[in-house]
Design a protein around this nucleic acid. Structure first.
Lengths: 235, 235
DNA sequence: ACCTGAACACCGTTCAAGT
DNA sequence: ACCTGAACACCGTTCAAGT
């Protein structure tokens, strides 16, 4: 059975199993998240995909929560921020948040992570830094910028989350609209009157609504500044 | 073994086990949520607390998701909205959202539900109706009111969620502040410059910050109105 | 140092069987 | 109509044992 010519034949009949590493684990986890949504993000599924046992992962990752923060940041790696040199600070800001929204749309489950895990990875920080810089350009005070960036990121992530969780289960949307349609207009007159406006629904309407919210927040953030907090909102 | 006097003796030697009902299930679930946070909300734990098997619950409740919406609304039952007759619409609005925030603070896990499940129960709707009415009083357009109410509720719930999830795990807060403290100021100059403002931290600061956000959103919502969407935010 | 197997203590949901 | 037991197909995490 030996090869008499002793041609060096690799003892590895097939490529060696990739050794584990934090990087492969995060990448695999992200793939699962993209393919199956947030329920795909489980230690056991990741382990199975890597052809090993779940306990092996704990060498590279403290627990699922820590892994989640890595996965979020890995997903945010796709984010491309517009060059700050081009365009106004406002359009750059809108474009950046739009890009954020798009990334969250494209990987179902990522929006939930963005809402649930602490964004302290390099890509999260880069986005934060970018937005802070645009707000600063726009003349926002330190407080406005520091607190406003949270508001803007939260808003964007939650719009994405609402959308993706609506897609996930088609039933839910029906439940909602049915509920609102059958409301007692005497008990909930405002809701009854506005129910059509509240659910624009179509995709173009969604984007328009997203933009509307962004503008509203931005206006408010820039104007509220660090004036003495007063009761009068319209002053 | 028979009682010869035939005195009517209850066959029930102890009070009959409360028959199951959606109401007891929801109440028990909420108690668990309050005591153990969101991880306490499980079919099996609820069943155990009711001294039955998990399968029994499915007679009264479709699944955990549906139950979650009931639990959220049950928790919101504690919400007391200020009488609309007293005070200005603005102070009523602030008070209502403050009450909402307080309820979410007081029942750990409720904030997560508010962010995650669809609020179509009567108490959620009452809160929504109340806020819509105040915005209407304040002269908001239909669109501003309809879209603004979402923004205000989302903001409040997320402030509560961030706070409660910070309390849950004391480690996390340290991780965050450490990360921000050790950031490279060359790579993230804005974050480095503003890191102290971003984490006011103390409780009074939290409330102040909450109020600041509310005012910012309100300002923006009222002003953005239904003007033609323009690029210029400051106009 | 890394990986494995096996175990522990959990999940949600279904379903045939009982009353 | 309601409740039960048992099962199915999952979870995250730990730990002694191997190499």
């Amino acid at each position: 059975m030996n090869n008499p010519t002793r041609t060096p034949v690799s003892r590895r009949s097939r490529p060696a199993k990739d050794p584990l590493s934090q990087e492969v684990i995060v990448k695999t986890a992200f793939d699962l998240l993209e393919r199956e949504g947030s329920s795909g993000l489980s230690m056991r599924k990741i382990a199975k995909a890597l052809d090993t046992g779940p306990s092996s992962l704990y060498v590279y990752v403290k627990n699922l929560e820590e892994l989640s923060t890595y996965v979020l940041d890995y997903g945010l790696g796709k984010l491309v921020l517009p060059p700050a040199a081009d365009g106004s600070w406002q359009s750059n800001l809108f474009d950046a948040l739009n890009a954020y929204l798009t990334v969250l749309y494209e990987s179902p489950g990522l929006a939930e992570l963005a809402l649930t895990t602490i964004p302290i990875g390099p890509h999260s920080l880069a986005l934060m830094e970018y937005i802070l810089a645009r707000l600063d350009e726009g003349g926002a005070s330190s407080i406005s910028a520091a607190w406003g960036v949270d508001l803007l990121l939260l808003y964007t992530a939650s719009v994405a989350f609402e959308q993706t969780s609506r897609d996930r289960m088609g039933t839910t949307l029906q439940t909602i609209t049915e509920t609102f349609r059958s409301l007692d207009p005497l008990r909930y007159p405002m809701i009854a009157a506005l129910k059509d406006v509240m659910f624009s629904g179509d995709e173009t309407g969604d984007l328009q609504r997203f933009r509307w919210g962004l503008e509203a927040i931005l206006r408010g953030v820039l104007q509220t500044g660090d004036k003495a907090p007063g009761r009068d909102v319209n002053a």
